[in-house]
């Protein structure tokens, strides 16, 4: 449908055989790319060519390709997901680039996100953060009615804003200090606004934020690069809420 012609691009891609390999940049030419293709489809084209030549294709994470699963990553031209507002890499279209552009593609860089291969990083540290408190404790049994607990619309909206986090890790990748504060705070905020999550509010903040320090994520210095990079536009408000809970929990903790 596009009136624009296809384009040729030069890619500087981080290649790394394994966790232990030092890794380095390799230059590739992406030829005949349509402006309607997504960034991942552009990489698919490059990989098809590499496979045809018998070379190892570029490894990158992806799954739903519709911006909701949080699997895609890529630090594109110095910003996570390319740095476009509210956009994941899979939803980033090639019309944002011009014919002849050079594009640098790197993996997320953080100590708790070790590179596994090429552009794929191990994000299981995020799973451990959720295990530390990103849940509500409930008894099993029949599913309760959806409307059994009335929640004011405004509170539900605040919880939903935080719940839109897809856990991609762009906040960590964008942070000058590799801090996971926006991710952790989104999980804390999502539950603290709901009656089901209120009971464990203080313990949750204490445990999750302590876990983040232990995992080796950096400390927040209020740059708000995370907020700008977040493909789901999670606001900085959630972090202030998490600090509040943490301060309260620390001051009044008994165990």
């Amino acid at each position: 449908m596009s009136s624009q012609k296809s384009m040729n691009l030069t890619l500087q891609v981080w290649r790394q055989k394994s966790k232990r390999d030092a890794g380095g940049f390799t230059t590739y030419q992406a030829k005949g790319i349509s402006p309607d293709q997504s960034f991942l489809e552009m990489l698919d084209v490059v990989n098809e060519e590499l496979i045809a030549k018998g070379e190892d294709p570029i490894a990158f994470d992806h799954d739903c390709r519709e911006g909701i699963c949080g699997m895609c990553s890529l630090y594109i031209n110095g910003a996570p997901h390319g740095g476009f507002p509210g956009t994941t890499t899979c939803q980033l279209h090639m019309r944002h680039f011009k014919d002849g552009d050079e594009i640098t593609i790197e993996p997320w860089r953080a100590k708790p996100f070790p590179v596994l291969k090429d552009l794929i990083v191990d994000r299981t540290s995020f799973d451990r953060l959720v295990q530390a408190g990103g849940y509500v404790s409930v008894n099993t049994g029949g599913a309760p009615d959806a409307n059994a607990v009335p929640i004011p619309k405004k509170e539900a909206d605040l919880a939903m804003d935080a719940a839109s986090c897809i856990g991609c890790g762009a906040c960590v990748a964008a942070c000058p200090n590799a801090s996971a504060m926006l991710f952790v705070s989104a999980k804390i905020s999502q539950l603290r606004h709901l009656p089901q999550g209120e009971a464990e509010r203080k313990k949750r903040a204490l445990n999750m934020l302590t876990r983040a320090d232990k995992e080796g994520f950096g400390a927040c210095r209020n740059h708000f690069e995370c907020e700008a990079a977040c493909p789901k536009d999670i606001p900085r408000r959630v972090m202030a809420e998490a600090y509040r809970d943490f301060i309260e929990a620390s001051a009044l903790r008994e165990e």
Partner: peptide
């Protein structure tokens, strides 16, 4: 020191989106 340790491998290219030089 902790923040430096949190990113052992630096990016080749970085574009800041929101922060200020004063903060950095």
């Amino acid at each position: 020191a902790l923040n430096r340790a949190a990113r052992p491998v630096a990016y080749a290219k970085t574009r800041r989106l929101r922060t200020s030089p004063a903060a950095l």
